[in-house]
Design a protein around this nucleic acid. Structure first.
Length: 379
RNA sequence: GGAGGGGUAGCGAAGUGGCCAAACGCAGAUGACUGUAAAUCAUUUCCCAUCGGGUUCGGCAGUUCAAAUCUGUCCCCCUCCA
């Protein structure tokens, strides 16, 4: 058991079963459920660490594959680790590179030993294995690191999934065996697609091992909303309650609420920052595409109910202008807002759980935003 | 006054008898984006309409089955020479 990292389950909502807890990390304690913005290349695009502190982000992500290529894990280590390198003092998490193997799948070849993959920038051959991924992550030095898994495509055959999950389990053991930084928590990743028995089997096998938490993988890969929820239903009941559960790659607000309802503690997603850069905002009035002409002379704040720096200081007309002119400040201000929207959502979620009214909160939220199965995201 | 070049959709710019409502770029409008190859991608922009139809390529008049493309003429712009 890791002495620098542990999960403290503080309260289970009597109305819903959702969990409120505290994650203790070497870089501070954070409350869960929480949302973690993604900073692939040791930066949450367009935001400074000061922006992140103001947003109260807690944990932020970075990425093994991308930092491996640039600047290289040795340089990050030389700089004193990821925290020093990028000057972020809060807790950090690195993904293992497993997802890049999936998203760059045009160039990959998966074997028992690991994955042959082509450098997406220059085509040069690369090889990533469970050992290599953990070795890189040990050098990067994030508080929480991920096991190297295979993220299978959806849909895929039962045979493919069985082979893949067994390999992911073997890879998990290999990663665990070489992990040598006691300050870093290591999470196992549950796969199995929407095969209930395979998900369950994966949970049973991985929870036998000495992981500090468990991630739910294989979601947000093109499946529909109902399927994703089914995957959660096939996974969460088989995970131990004394360890954190992390739903990887999920960040639309309806999915966060559904995840929390099922017992998820941690979420990460590029969605708020990516769509912000593309001019789409999550607001108390639903989705706003700031580029739209109707905002040309709208001198009101982006979201009247929001307390973020952007909403307190700038108008929709100005944000639209920045977007149209492709100014970096626009991307920054819009990213600030979207992240704050999700941070505020998780704050309200935690409060509702502690007050044993999370189910009401979730239902009210869905009603307010007109969310349903057909229109799940609503923005 | 003389010689030459040019006027194409919001802008720039292809096209020089039928495959042209007219490439392409920009600009505009709209949508998408879920462990970030993402300042990306998709749709759309003469008019009306579901199919489909109606008006266009400086103006006018011609030639032709057929013209943005050929002829005449007029208007405007640019360069050079006087």
């Amino acid at each position: 058991m890791n002495k620098d990292f542990w999960y403290e389950l503080k309260h289970v909502c009597k109305q819903s079963g959702a969990r409120y807890g505290i994650l203790h990390t070497p870089h501070g304690d954070v409350e869960t459920p929480m949302f973690m913005p993604v900073g692939t290349l040791a930066t949450v695009k367009y935001l400074s660490p000061e922006d992140l502190y103001a947003l109260e982000t807690g944990v932020i992500l970075s990425n093994t594959y991308h930092l491996w290529l640039r600047p290289g894990e040795d340089i990050v280590k030389e700089a004193g680790g990821l925290h020093n390198f990028m000057n972020y003092k809060g807790p950090m998490l690195t993904d293992s590179g497993g997802f890049q193997v999936f998203s760059l799948s045009d160039f990959r070849k998966i074997t028992e030993e690991g994955v042959k993959i082509k450098n997406h920038r220059d085509g040069s051959p690369l090889f990533l294995s469970p050992e290599k991924s953990i070795e890189i992550q040990n050098k990067l030095g994030a508080d929480i690191i991920m096991s190297f898994d295979e993220c299978p495509p959806y849909p895929c055959t039962r045979e493919y999934m069985e082979n893949s999950v067994n390999r992911t389990i073997r890879w998990a053991k290999r990663g665990l065996a070489v992990h040598n930084n006691p300050k870093q928590a290591l999470f196992g990743i549950i796969q199995g697609g929407d095969f209930e028995d395979i998900r369950k089997y994966c949970c049973e096998e991985l929870t036998k091992l000495d992981f500090d938490g468990f991630s739910i993988g294989g979601t947000s890969v093109g499946e529909d909303k109902e399927t994703m929820l089914r995957m959660l239903d096939y996974t969460l009941p088989y995970l131990p309650s004394d360890k954190p559960r992390y739903l990887m790659g999920v960040g639309s607000y309806d999915s966060i609420l559904e995840g929390v309802l099922r017992g998820v503690d941690m979420f990460d997603c590029v969605l708020p920052t990516r769509i912000a850069r593309h001019g789409a905002l999550m607001t108390s009035e639903g989705r706003v595409n700031i580029r739209d002409k109707k905002y040309e002379r709208d001198f009101s704040p982006l979201d009247k109910e929001c307390d973020c720096y952007t909403c307190k200081n700038y108008t929709r007309a100005y944000l639209r202008h920045l977007y149209k002119c492709e100014e970096g400040l626009g991307k920054r201000l819009l990213s600030i807002h979207n992240i704050r929207f999700l941070i505020n959502l998780t704050k309200e979620i935690r409060k509702a759980i502690q007050e044993d009214r999370f189910l009401d909160f979730k239902n009210e939220f869905f009603e307010k935003y007109g969310l349903n199965v057909k229109n799940p995201r609503g923005f």
